[in-house]
Amino acid sequence: MNIIEVENLGFDFAQKTILNSLSFNIKKGTFLGIIGPNGAGKTTLLNLLCGLLKPKTGSIKIDSKLVKSYQIKELARKIAVVRQEFVPVFDFSVTEIVTMARNPYLGSFAFPSESDKKIITHALELTDTAQFADRLLGSLSGGERQRVFIAKAIAQDTPILLLDEPTSFLDMKHQVGIYDLLKDVQISQNKTIAAVTHDINLAVQYCDEILILSSDNNYIYGQPNEVLTQERISNVFGIQVMNGKISDKVFFIPLGKYSKKDK
């Protein structure tokens, strides 16, 4: 069953076409990786999917219903978004931030019920953030904060999870940790995940499908081993790449002018 249906999607920004006649469907429970060079419209696509931007042409449906026809709270029960990291102006604690994720389910004062608290505790445990639940968000490191934002998205308890470069700023251990965590919730809660990423090698290992957006408004959608070839990566990013294979997974190493290429 398709949970997200994108048809003939187009979007302009400042008289420049960002996306043009983009069509693809995402099946429920899929892990999609969105890759492409800077400015290709990856973040724009995420913002279109979660209803923050209105498409110029075409349509986006979530659960067979147009995104624009959703009530704002109803949509917040369908899609959770993890954005590139930010620090809030006022000092909220980790628990307070994660608790805010329950807002789409609660009344105006939004005090969490016992079942909400269970969901919050579970999200904190899954992301290994329970240890600093009482600390202020501003006092955490970038990687810790990123895990808190993922905890928040999990506590929002939505069938769809969108992420904008969830592993930028993170060291290798935490990069893998985040992808493991995402894979866990994909499998255990049958979540549909779409993540924008610059790390093609991680995408190859974890994603079921790949969407490549290129700067000339073309796109390719398919399974990682079909879509990701040396030639295509080279064309889309405009660089030379070296590739290799470990068991059935390909990997890519970008080559610059001064890279050591000795055979």
């Binding site: 917040a76 954005r83 805010m100 807002n103 105006s108």
Partner: peptide
Amino acid sequence: NSLNIITLGEYESKGLGI
């Protein structure tokens, strides 16, 4: 409560149904 969430930023608060 909406004001709490709005301090996180416009995109965040819209994503949380505000």
